[in-house]
Design a protein around this nucleic acid. Structure first.
Length: 463
DNA sequence: CCACCTTTGAAGCCA
DNA sequence: TGGCTTCAAAGGTGG
């Protein structure tokens, strides 16, 4: 059941993602913490040639073996524990951060008071809240009531508001949708704001500013100066460009649903009834990029080509497909990571082939610390929530074979250890990466179920 | 022109 | 319930 049911209550911690973290072992954690991304790539570049040999000799160093199966229970226990501890800490004084650095979702035990006693925003809180705020807004949106009702932890609507107000009023905050709208504003038409939107457009960026409710002062102060006062919490997402709030994407990080996020931005500012239903049009009337109309998506009806179908039938089919636009799946954490890092890897490794890049990215993904991965997990969770908001009736099943006329993806008939890495490695040392696909997948499948047992309501219902 | 490759994660499907 | 499959992005490659 794709319905969002627990989005409101999981705000504190995205437990599903918490348990999604691969317990890579403390040893590897330390290693990854000590290694910067750049160094990682450098390592990949410089040592991968030998690494393939090393891996052969020391199979124990393989990804799969180095990382024991996720200990979801322990992990969750730690999470709860640290949550409580974090709460104590916040009560007691300076918010010093989580006792378990690897569990960033519990950094902010109380969103209603993300500030330090001196009034400043806790750095960690700041970082988290910028990812959190959109969710708060979402909460206040269409799902607010039912989520609040469903999850006892979820604050009442009043609380939601009260949560939101102090947060958004903070003078140093950045756009609450920052994490989500860092992808693209390419669909914004600065001079032509949606009719329902107030013509409050940032003169410099052309980004429509959210309205400032009379009872809420500067809701999302997007003035560049303000935004620039603090480091962008999602610098990992935001290319260092002139537009910190809506950095674009060329090349690197084009969001799957830039307009969706824009919609979310709008949604966050508008009452639930204004939230667009699950159709392909954004509130601005611009088709949602996550929605690929069959005419654009070549693969939609290619199976019909050469068949005996009449053009009439094809036309009707096209019409049918037009009526049912293809809504893409929300990106998962790794996909988001790939989007961000691809350009960098391409630049550093002088590679262009995505298969090769993805291998590197996959490796780097595993080298990320939990904190770093947590950002992407959290963002992915936001993505899913937003996606559910935008397309309440959508299900991944809709994109399954047959439902959209897509061809069946070819089966992967390679054996687990049988990759073409060697040939590619010959061409490029960056590609000497250990094959870890099968093991990881099954490992994930295994712990996923465990995760479900203790997952937050969002996933609990799915299982 | 389009499937394939390659990665991880989410979710669907099936026994 | 567990395991497998599909899809999401990306862009070069090859049939």
């Amino acid at each position: 059941m794709p319905q969002l049911n627990g989005g409101g209550g999981d705000d504190l911690g995205a437990n599903d993602e918490l348990i999604s973290f691969k317990d890579e072992g403390e040893q590897e954690e330390k290693i990854s913490e000590n290694s910067s991304a750049e160094r990682d790539l450098a390592d990949v570049k410089s040592s991968l040639v030998n690494e393939s040999e090393t891996n052969q000799n020391s199979s124990s160093d393989s990804e799969a073996e180095r990382r024991p199966p996720p200990r979801s229970e322990t992990f969750r226990d730690k999470s709860r524990e640290s949550l409580e501890e974090a709460a104590k800490r916040q009560d007691g004084g300076l918010f010093k951060g989580p006792p378990y650095p690897g569990y960033p979702f519990i950094m902010i035990p109380d969103l209603s008071s993300p500030y330090l006693p001196n009034g400043s925003l806790s750095p960690t809180a700041r970082t988290y809240l910028q990812m959190k705020w959109p969710l708060l807004d979402v909460q206040a949106g269409s799902l607010q009531s039912r989520q609040a009702l469903k999850d006892a932890r979820s604050p009442s609507p009043a609380h939601i508001v009260s949560n939101k107000v102090p947060v958004v009023q903070h003078p140093h905050h950045v756009h609450p949708l920052t994490p989500l709208i860092t992808y693209s504003n390419e669909h914004f038409t600065p001079g032509n704001p949606p009719p329902h939107l107030p013509a409050d457009v940032d003169p410099k960026t052309g980004i429509p500013r959210p309205p400032h409710p009379p009872d809420i002062s500067p809701y999302y102060p997007l003035s560049p100066g303000t935004v620039g006062q603090i480091p962008h919490p999602l610098g990992w997402l935001v290319p260092q460009q002139g537009q910190p709030v809506y950095p674009i994407t060329t090349g690197g990080f084009r969001h799957p649903y830039p307009t969706a996020l824009t919609v979310n931005a709008s949604m966050s500012r508008f009452p639930p009834h204004m939230v667009p239903p699950h159709h392909s049009l954004h509130t601005t009337g611009i088709p949602h990029p996550a929605i690929v109309t069959p005419t654009v998506k070549q693969e939609s009806s290619q199976s019909d080509v050469g068949s005996l179908h009449s053009s009439k039938h094809q036309d009707s089919k096209k019409e049918e497909e037009k009526k049912k636009p293809h809504i893409k799946k929300p990106l998962n954490a790794f996909m988001l990571y790939m989007k961000e890092m691809r350009a960098k890897v391409v630049a550093e490794c002088t590679l262009k082939e995505s298969a090769a890049i993805n291998q590197i990215l996959g490796r780097r993904w595993h080298a990320l610390s939990r904190e770093e991965q947590a950002k992407y997990y959290e963002l992915a969770r936001k993505e899913r929530q937003l996606h559910m908001q935008l397309y309440p009736g959508w299900s991944a099943r809709d994109n399954y074979v047959g439902s959209y006329g897509k061809k069946k993806k070819r089966k992967r008939d390679k054996q687990p250890g049988e990759t073409n890495e060697h040939s590619e490695c010959f061409l490029n040392p960056c590609l000497s990466l250990p094959p870890i696909t099968g093991e990881k997948k099954s490992a994930f499948a295994t712990y996923k179920v465990k995760a479900a047992a203790s997952a937050h309501p969002l996933q609990m219902e799915a299982y």
